[in-house]
């Protein structure tokens, strides 16, 4: 069976846990400091602070290094994510970003921004509305849509938009709030 051309530095055909660990250790610091906004400050909304309509957002840019790191963690080597030529044959402008990569930013949204420190993620439902490509600048926004003060749980409607303002990912996040 012919090998697909793979245009990232990690060889998916030698994927073992030990190899992945080695790959992760070799990820340069510059990659770890990729273009996502990183905040030392974590919000600390409590149930009494939270109202329906409360909104938080942040921005990031998807880089090829993020794709490498996502692959190193998940070992998802589907050619649509790994091979630009293959993706073009499928009608896309380039490698399609893993849907779960922007979706993973919902973890950041809940754990850092809304509610932040007191969050315990209960569930995330995602819809991958449009493809995301390397270089896309994304805005991740969450708005509280429901509050249940019996179970200390909030529902957040989340959306990720690209630089054109088009929705690329939609989500419904349910999060426990510890205080």
């Amino acid at each position: 069976m012919p090998r697909l051309r793979v245009d990232v530095g990690i060889d998916p055909y030698k994927c073992t846990v030990a190899k992945l660990r080695e790959d992760m250790e070799s990820v340069p610091r510059s990659v770890a400091q990729s273009k996502i906004q990183r905040r030392k400050h974590v919000n600390s909304y409590t149930m009494s602070d939270i109202t329906v309509g409360l909104t938080e957002s942040f921005e990031t840019e998807i880089t090829s290094e993020m794709m490498d790191m996502f692959y190193a963690i998940t070992a998802d080597n589907s050619p649509i994510h790994m091979d630009a030529q293959y993706a073009k044959q499928r009608g896309y402008e380039g490698r399609v970003v893993y849907g779960m990569l922007p979706a993973s930013l919902f973890s950041t949204l809940a754990g850092v921004y809304l509610p932040g420190e007191h969050c315990l993620l209960h569930s995330v439902e995602c819809k991958f509305v449009k493809p995301v490509f390397i270089g896309d600048k994304l805005t991740v926004t969450g708005t509280v849509s429901e509050i249940n003060d019996t179970f200390n749980e909030i529902t957040i409607k989340a959306v990720i938009t690209n630089a054109d303002g088009k929705k690329v990912t939609r989500g419904v996040i349910k999060a426990g709030v510890a205080k």
């Binding site: 209960h122 569930s123 249940n148 019996t150 179970f151 749980e153 349910k174």
Partner: peptide, 8 residues
């Protein structure tokens, strides 16, 4: 967790 989902 499902108990919360059921009750809500």
């Amino acid at each position: 967790l499902e108990q919360i989902n059921l009750l809500t």
